[in-house]
Design a protein around this nucleic acid. Sequence first.
DNA 1: AGTAGGACCTGGTGGC
DNA 2: TGCCACCAGGTCCTAC
Length: 294
Amino acid sequence: MPELPEVETIAQELQILLQGKKIQAVEILRESIVRSPLTEFQAALVGRKISKVKRRAKFLIFSLEDKKHPNPLLFLVVHLRMTGQFAFQTQPHLSPSQPFSALVYPQKMVPKNQRILFDFGKETLIYYDQRALGQMAIFTPAHFQLLEKKWGVEPLGKEFTCKRLQNIIHKRKISLKTLLLDQKAIAGIGNIYASEILFAAGLHPKRIASSLNAKEAEGLHFSLLKILKMAIAEKGTTFRDYKRTRQQTGNFQNFLKVYGRAGKTCFTCKDLVQKIKQNQRSTFFCPQCQPMSV
DNA sequence: AGTAGGACCTGGTGGC
DNA sequence: TGCCACCAGGTCCTAC
């Protein structure tokens, strides 16, 4: 579900909701999501203040501070995968005598898919994840640096110039669609925005990356930034599961030109939008607006 | 270097 | 209504 614009939206909202708040308790309802040793995970979170929430690639990075601790700064790193969601609510807290979830939902009406609960005293942050593929772990600043090195260039960073994109594509003999999904090349683009970016650029998804000329690369760079920025301005795309921190949806689904529109007429040329499989994943494109030959 | 297939998980949908 | 196959916004691993 969540790609760069969705994760960016969630990070911005969590930053406002959580900054300066101290975690009182954590309840883990699905252990497989936590990739650190469970006791270490609990110990790292409880009693720490969240000083910042930001996005990098498709990850949410929570800065956790405790000035008196030998490790004054730790990071909680979260990947939502397909169906991860954070919901913030002004509801009660954990009591040592009762399970957290029983307090929040008195009749044992624990909503489905609740996986991890973060207690802030008077407020609660709930991590939902239907498919439970999401992951979270604690990192020291040193380990976090190592992790960050594995990620591709940040498309919204100032280092992502047209020249940089040309360097990335010129040696890759894979399709443009596959390249856009390669997180080690460019970080943050997922299946929806890959199709939308290529439509905006007028490039066929099966074009080999290295075959682009300078003008086409420039167009791809421009379209990539345009689509991602528009999607962030619209708070992301709610196609099926994506919800924001107060359960609001995004709005960019109203601007999709090809994704999910197989068999429908292209808004630009009236040809029919096609759906194909690339690397076992759906790609949508307009054959007229995105010709294979230049 | 690139790709196919399976794994991780759950639930919605459409066909019979 | 029931069962089944297939689909899903992500990523990692192994085998060719």
